[in-house]
Design a protein around this nucleic acid. Structure first.
Lengths: 369, 369
DNA sequence: GTTAGCACTCGAAAAGGTTGAGTGCTAACA
DNA sequence: TGTTAGCACTCAACCTTTTCGAGTGCTAAC
């Protein structure tokens, strides 16, 4: 945050102009271009001198002797930290987003998937969403639904509004009444309990109460466990992979190939998603070589974590070329985050009760905006 | 099917050699290459003459005067219809597939998604799966699960083992007992009925029986209807889009771009999926210009429809370059189809009862293999 | 009917030439 | 002391030319 002590007003201005131009044109930027396009009352020669200084300080670099300059990671970092203009308000867009989220609000995983799609559409980059792996999942309801003589549906509803179901076959017919009875026993015993307290053994014991044969109960309890496991598992959504090819950086198909390979790798995704960090706005921006470890050194990742009532419900990351349009990406994610958290707070009393209980108020817009 | 009357044994042999070589190398094939690689006791000159004949007959064409030959659509068609060798059995692969399908068998949409993934993995091409839009959906069970005071989960299980659920908020608290009571009424009245007999009005009327306020019942019935609608809607799964870039035909990124654009277009997908036709094996192969209408004239599509108990439960299509490895693609899809239908028939008595009722036997492997 | 031989074609790759945007440096200027 | 004009230099991009070789068609001999 201190790196701009050495940069005077003019250097900052020129750096910003170079980066803006480069983001837009994806061509190395020359001093004459800046002198012509950005009216700063300076000749190309002066700008040339300043750019030489900026290069020496590490904010810019040139691909080869006689070409224009390209921002370095350090340059981008300064740009992101100090020069981003807040995006213009866009009520139409806001309305559209609200609309697209409207009927998704009830279930978090659908909600985050929808957010991921929206963000990808807004930014034209790849977006990766994930539901956050909560340390402990509370089971809100377990239900066993009779489907026909030889199959039942196990349904588990957990907090964070996660619903998982599994259709299981049972070896011998079971009357619907017995199923409902069993469902009642299981449900009464476990709803409200944290998942780790529900072991296979306890489920079995409870099931035994119903007097149904072990052979029949086993697949059902297995089904319930499968559902709980799925509730605890993080989900990932990658959206907009096709848009990628539209970026001019992928003129060469090999780059596209290697990027696609990388982005499909599960470990890489996890690293991207889990990149922590908390700037004032709640976004994490990781630029170029800053995330070299992941093989992502030519790319930048901007991550927004969504927090409701103090706990993280998931995140959306945008992955794009280092010269991505940070302004657009950051404002889109900020916007999304704000809107989602506000909406969740408003709906809190209804669809996400167990989370808002923890916040002091859920009427005003008071939380950690 | 009659086009090979004019082709003698030797021409067929040469045609096959050219296509095999082209599929493998993706380079126009010259007469000398054939003479060298495929030991047919003929000199390049003879082969050259034959190839000239084949070109005149429309089975081959040459990109320019002094290059090798490339198969035409007619050539591929002959190849596909008459020259495909059955794939070697591969027990390890078979076991892997069975394993990957194992716990997916209960729900058709998951099953088809899994099949699509597997086929794409096996062939290295893009695969598109779809659940077949049944004309009428039968509802097997409807359940309303109390989640907490202000939200309930509506669950609809339809035939073809489709499960849809939706979490809905209700405006005023409702005790779990009342919810279960309501669930019982709705379920008893509608399970086993075809979906079109369940109108919003009838649901409402039934709900009124419970004596719960209309305000509260409405979002719940809406939820049920949403679920039914989803059961009736076809789903599409596109898998392996990234693999595409590995094909040498996408040396030029613009081709990749336009293909991706095309493959994302919903209408194109529907055309691909709905391409009908029934060869003896139950697969449809549409080659190059044969599907010119769809803008797919440089690609081929192989579609397998999965039929269980006489009705179609969905399909998987492989979309790839015209010079795709037909042998591999066709055998993979045939294999998948066989396995899936056999498995469905075996499991029939348990997880897919209403479909197997219609078949005469479900013990032997007797059906339309 | 098959094959060897040969002239010819034409794309792909290599080699050479030109252009122009961009740089660094120096010297003049305010 | 900071700014600017001028100039020599660099180097990727682009165009043109040349070379190369795989492939063809045709003819004549087997």
């Amino acid at each position: 945050m201190e790196e701009n002590k050495e940069l005077d007003e003019r250097k900052l201005m020129i750096l910003k102009a170079v980066i803006d131009d480069y983001i837009q044109s994806f061509e190395p930027v020359g001093s004459r271009t800046i002198a012509r396009k950005y009216d700063m009352g300076l000749s190309s020669a002066t700008i040339r001198n300043e750019m030489a200084d900026l290069e020496e300080m590490g904010y810019l670099s040139s691909p080869h002797t006689s070409s224009g300059r390209v921002p370095s990671t350090k340059g981008y970092r300064t740009y992101v930290n100090h020069m981003l203009e807040p995006a213009a308000e866009n009520p139409a867009l806001a309305a559209e987003i609200v609309g697209r989220l409207e009927d998704k609000m009830t279930e978090y995983s659908k909600l985050i998937k929808a957010c991921t799609e929206i963000v990808s559409d807004m930014t034209h980059y790849i977006a990766i969403g994930s539901t956050h792996g909560r340390d402990s999942v509370n089971v809100k309801a377990i239900q066993i639904v009779p489907v026909d003589e030889t199959s039942v549906l196990t349904v588990v509803v957990a907090d964070a509004n996660t619903v998982k179901s599994k259709l299981v076959s049972i070896p011998e017919p079971l009357e619907p009444e017995r199923v409902i009875e069993l469902s009642g026993i299981v449900n009464r015993s476990f709803s409200g309990k944290p998942a780790e307290m529900i072991s296979l053994m306890t489920v079995n014991r409870v099931a035994d109460e119903s007097g149904i044969s072990r052979n029949t109960v086993l697949p059902i309890t297995d089904g319930i466990f499968e559902c709980i496991k799925q509730c605890e598992t993080d989900e990932f959504f990658t959206e907009g992979a096709a848009k990628l090819l539209k970026s001019p950086e992928f003129d060469n198909i090999d780059k596209a190939r290697s990027f696609i390979d990388m982005i499909q790798d599960k470990e890489t995704i996890e690293k991207i998603v889990n990149a922590s960090g908390d700037s004032e706005s709640g976004l994490t921006v990781s630029i170029g070589t800053e995330n070299s470890g992941e093989g992502l050194s030519d790319y930048s990742v901007v991550t927004a974590k969504f927090e409701v009532g103090g706990s993280c419900i998931g995140s959306v990351s945008v992955v794009g070329p280092t010269r991505m349009d940070y302004s657009k990406v950051i404002s889109s994610l900020e916007y999304m985050k704000q809107m989602l958290e506000k909406k969740a707070r408003e709906d809190g009393g209804r669809s996400i009760p167990e989370l808002t209980v923890k916040t002091e108020d859920n009427e005003g817009g008071g939380g950690a905006s």
